[in-house]
Each structure stands twice: as C-alpha cells, then as structure tokens.
Design a protein around this nucleic acid. Structure first.
Lengths: 344, 344
DNA sequence: CTGAAAGCGCTTACAG
DNA sequence: CTGAAAGCGCTTACAG
C-alpha cells in the first residue's frame, strides 16, 4: 500500500523552507524558535505525518527511552498484571517497553540482552530460577537493571521482590491457629525462587509446633498436577486437616480433587492458596490465600529504573526492596466456620 | 557500576587489527573472510562482550527485526497467551517484540505508533473497539500490519480473528438441543468487537426457535458485575433454564451467584461460558464453554507479518483469516445429566 | 579477501 | 533565532 516512503526530517525541512536543525529544534523544544517558524514547521509535520526515526535518535542522543523486560515465561494472569504495571508506568513517563521472554538457560538470556543493546536504556529482569541468577547479575553489572523476584541474597544489586517468606509464614500460622495440625504443603517446582522461599517459610513455622505434622508434596505450580497428586493422596486413605497449595492455580486443582473424592472443603479438609488471582474469591468456597502485589511489583520496578535513567545514572542504586504480601482470609480455610481471628 | 562504556565496533577493530568493515562482515557473515581473521575477530568480540548497537543497525539497513504489538489492555490470561504466541514465533525467526498497550482513544494509538517508528518493521494491532478501527486502518495503510480481532468487515486489510459468531451460535444450538428455552445471555461491553459478534450470533439463533425466550443482560466481561447482575435477576424471582455468559470470567461470577442463591448448577440453572481459559475445567461443575485459539492467534499473526517482512513487502497481503472456535462440552450445561450429544 | 569512504536520519555544539 | 557541519555506530558498494 504505502507507495511513498515515510518522510524524513529532510523532507519536512524542505517543505517548510528551513534547515533540518530547525525542524529538530521545534520537535524537541530544544531552543528558542520564532513562533512563526515553529508554526510553519508544525503544520508541515502534521500534514506529512512525520515522526522522527527512533533508531537514529537513539544513536545520537544515546538514550532510547525504552525499558527492556526480560521474562522467564509468559503464563497466566501473573505476567499480564506485571507487564501492565510496568507498561502503564513507562508510558506515564514517556518510555516504551520492549518485552522478551528468554528461556531459563543462561545463553538464551545473554542472546536476548545482546539483541536489545542499543534499543533499551536498561533492564527489568525477572529471575526464572536460582540458576539464572548469575547471568542476570552480569546483566546488572553492565546495564542499569532492576532484578525482580531474585530471592533474598541478591548481593549488591538493585532488587525488588515480594515477601514470600512472610506471606507463607502468615498462612501457616493462620492454619495452625485454626487448629489444623496435619498439614499438607503442595509446593512448587524445585529451583524456582518463589517456590523455594515459600517452602522454607512453611518448614520453619511447622518446626515451631511440636504437634504439627507437615507433609510436602510437589505440584509443580500446575493445576493438573495438583489435581493428580491430591487425588492419589486421598485414595491412599490420607486425611489431612488442611492442604496449603503454594499457588492459587494448584489450589483450584486441589479443591476439585477433594470434591471428586466426595469430601467437603473446608469441612473435611481446609484448602488455601497463594497469589490471590482475581478468580479466587469466586471459587466455591472462596479461597483463603496470600495476596501478591503484582501490579505494584511492575510499577515499582519500572519506577526505580526510570528514576536512575532520568538522573543519567549508570546503575540503579543497590537496594533490595521487599513488598509485603497480605493474608486474605475467605472461607476455604474453615475460618468462617470456626470463627477465629486472622493471625497476620 | 559499569565504569567502562560499552565497546563499539571501532574498539573491536582496533583490538583485532582489522578495519571496522571486516568486523562488520564477520558479524553478519556478509562476505568471504579468511578463517584466520574471522577467528581473530570472533575471539575479540567474545572477550570484549561486544554486541552491535541495534539502533544504528536499524538506521543503516532499514530493518529493525522487531515486531510492534499494539494492545488495547493487558488483562488476564487472554493477553499473556496471545503475547506468548507472538513472542515465541518472533524469537524463532530472529525477531524481537515491542509491546505497548495503547488505550482506546485514537490519539493514544497514534502516539504509540509514531513512538515506534524506526523501531519496528511492522505492527500487530489488536482492535480494542469498533471505534478504533479507523485509526488502526490508517496504521495498516502506512506500515506492514496485521489487524487482529477487528471484526468481520475490515475491508482490504490483512486481518486475523477468531470466529466468534460460529462459536456463540454453536453454543446456543447446544443449549437449545438440551431442551433449554428460557435463556439469559450475559453479554460483554457495548462497542467491543468480540462482544458484539457473540451477541449477534446469539440473537440470530434464538430467532430460529419460536419458543426460545431470550433475555439479554449486560455483564461488562467482569466477574463482579456478572455476580451482581445474576444475583439481582434471581432475587427478582426469575428462573431461567440456562445462563450463557459471553466470557468465562463472567461465568465464574454467574456460578457463584447461583450457588449463593441456594440453587444448583446445572440442575436448576445451566451455565456456559466463552474462551476456555485454563481454569474452566476445574470449576465445579466443570464449565461448558467455547475454546478460543489464543496462542494460535498470536502465532499466526506474527507469522504472517514476518513472512511479508522477509519478502521485503510493504504491506501484508489483504486477506481475512478466521480461526475456528470450538465447543467444549463439560457438565455445567447439563449435558452430562441429559445425556445428549454435542451439536457442533 | 580487505580497507577507505560514503551514507543512513538524526542532534548538537559552533558560528553568525 | 537559524544554518552549515560534525558526528553517533554501523553497513555496503567501490576499489584494489
């Protein structure tokens, strides 16, 4: 369709009868320009639908005004919420967002980063696993970077994460305060940062109680795996007081498995999750879970990066910011039945 | 941190004792280079961690090898699935993905597009509303673009969408074949393309049956709105045979509302949804719905754009590709009870 | 096979 | 206030 090529700054200058320097100036509000010439240039720009070439601009001014986002995977509501937080913040400050989902392997992350060089001013890097941390640390050494969800021992880097430990601990305390003692913890994938932090918290709290009987099962953060694992557990005759799923997705599978075994939630077995995805309050029964401030996570990460970029900084100040997770008590834990108060 | 600035092609050339032209050649496999010099250059590149500046490259070769994605909003699993389809395809072909969520307004879309000029080779534009169609059409006139979900009458543009009409019609026929006659259709937002196509299909099929009693209610595609609307409906004493929610999110709210009114699904009221989001099969009862091939939507859109880009084309061949939606029968519609066969 | 040079589309001192 | 010119970091004919 587009027969005529996109106009360049030279075309605009010619049509407006000025130099390209002047065009550049009115476009960037760079220096004093007569109202007269400015108007003339502006009208030509509008007429031709001229927009400066982003690539060129980046070469000259050495800034791209775009944020590179390195993602491990793109599944579920978690990531769309996270990207939304980033993108809305970026847009507000005149930045664009360049997203790429690198896989877990170090070389793929490196490839993505090198691909993005000259196209982004800095990175928002979500850690897919403890294993990838070293690669991400290298990125952070070379470019302004905020490490997201990289775990507790990120060293001297700018980092941001949600307090998985505190959230999972609060949930365990809550279950114990309700009188549950035989607790099954359905954990996430080994090596995954969030999953392992939640696991550690659960173990620690369980240890405080002599009579707490903790069983750990792996559900891989997947609905179907969770369903199968719990179905098997129940078929084996086990009857725990409560099943704490390390994420909401698994909790859905758990509830389904319990019902299919003709048992009731929470009367026979209490169930809780983690994440507070939008659907959880509409499950039956509504799910007791831990709220992850995912939008804020994206928002804060973007904001910190943008602030150091604005200041011309070469690295984001090393500081590990930890956003609090919040216990959300609904009825799947049995709290409504036993009428206990929330143990934050 | 990064005290020394990122190396440029000049640094590499100097260190390897060759000209920058040669460095460029080995990096791009552009022309015959002695194995000897190639090796020397390669090792310097590795040592310095050199990566060519993407912006500059784009200026010279007039290609960026990146796809621009224009999104209306970023909510829920729908978009992460869609972006995943795009990004995996893009990566496979050596492209990057530049994502931006423009709002609904025409000027915001225009701003995003002009921002992306020189940074992307073409666009994947998701239509947020019938209103935005004109703006998107302008984009498609100037740049290689695939319009996604833009409705049926997109004119002479490259377009891709899911067959909402056929999907919604199949669901209506299915409900009617099960003997349901008093049907409530909980529709989506006015002006939203998917929503209006589903609505039209429902109306048309309902018209074919003299005894079909169709009631339309608006649920705005939201869980909470759906819950409220249905709660009010039931409180008013209405007892429809079935409630067809125009998306799964609303179906969750509907089921919740019915249960809270002490009624059973599907025994008292059948419920169906649309989209087949991952959680639907784990609802109780498992949801009968229509499967949207979202990942494929992203994949196909990316592929078509990449193909024309590869060929050096200036516009994606005008062709409206429509992916089929598929009826997924589970038990929330009452099919399991009445033992009827699926009406595709 | 390899280098010197022109040029991509911009911005920004430097003059005037 | 405005223009001519240098330069950003690369690629690609053009010679040799």
């Amino acid at each position: 369709m587009s027969s005529r090529p996109t106009p360049t700054i030279r075309d605009v200058a010619k049509a407006a009868g000025v130099s390209i320097a002047t065009v550049s100036r009115v476009l960037n509000d760079a220096a004093r320009v007569t109202e007269d010439t400015r108007d003339r240039v502006r009208s030509v720009v509008d007429k031709m639908g001229y927009a400066p070439h982003g690539g060129t601009r980046a070469v000259v001014v050495r800034r791209t005004r775009t944020l590179g986002v390195l993602l491990p995977e793109l599944y579920g509501e978690f990531f769309s919420e996270f990207i939304r937080g980033i993108d809305e913040t970026a847009k507000k400050h005149g930045f664009l967002t360049l997203v790429t989902s690198a896989r877990r392997e170090a070389n793929e992350i490196a490839a993505a980063v090198s691909n993005m060089r000259g196209r982004v001013d800095g990175f928002l890097a979500v850690s897919p696993s403890v294993a990838a941390r070293a690669t991400l640390a290298e990125v952070a050494e070379r470019y302004p970077t905020v490490l997201v969800g990289a775990g507790s021992d990120v060293g001297a880097f700018a980092a941001l994460s949600v307090n998985n430990f505190q959230g999972a601990a609060a949930m365990m305390k809550h279950l114990l305060s309700l009188g549950h003692r035989k607790i099954v913890f359905l954990r996430g994938p080994a090596g995954q940062v969030d999953a392992s932090e939640r696991l550690h918290a659960v173990r620690e709290v369980a240890n405080w109680y002599d009579d707490c009987e903790l069983t750990e099962l792996s559900g891989e953060f997947r609905m179907d795996t969770a369903y199968e694992v719990v179905t098997q557990l129940l078929q084996s005759g086990a009857r725990p007081d409560a099943i704490f799923a390390a994420n909401d997705t698994m909790a859905v599978g758990v509830i389904s498995a319990i019902k299919d075994a003709d048992l009731r939630v929470p009367d026979d077995i209490a169930v809780t999750g983690f994440d507070d995805t939008p659907m959880t309050r509409y499950l039956s029964p509504p799910l007791t879970t831990v709220r992850m401030p995912i939008f804020s996570l994206g928002e804060r990460a973007a904001l910190r990066l943008i602030e150091t970029l604005r200041g011309g900084g070469t690295a984001v100040p090393a500081n590990h910011e930890i956003l609090p997770a919040q216990l959300v008590i609904r009825s799947s834990c049995g709290a409504a039945h036993k009428m206990m108060e929330a143990a934050g």
